[in-house]
Amino acid sequence: MKALIVDDASLARTMLRKLLEANGYSEIWEAANGEEAIHLYEGVKPNLVTMDITMPGMDGITAIKKIMAADPAANIIVCSALGEKNIVLEAIQAGAKHFIVKPYDVDKVVDIIKAVSE
């Protein structure tokens, strides 16, 4: 299975990569902003996307909307920080399947990856 991690912070990407690898994702791609993410999504067609919200360049919400428009079946988990609840709600309304909150609680993230991957 293929996954695409979108985050501008490399530490966050590495952590998610490890978790995804441990949960059945063999091919993992990384993007640092929205544009890259959309580009990669088209080429890779990943089974799962984790999408950070605040990033330089195109933000996560816009990227989610564009990806969803291109592929309504896209499987996107939005990554947020505590307190960003209105943005998360917007992301969910835009089509995100679930959300995870930083700092990441590993167990929770794994559970959510599993639930969304089904």
Binding site: I92, Q93, K97
Partner: peptide, 14 residues
Amino acid sequence: SEMQGASALIFVKF
């Protein structure tokens, strides 16, 4: 809790 609105919405979708 802070995010229960988002959680509830996710849950409804599920």
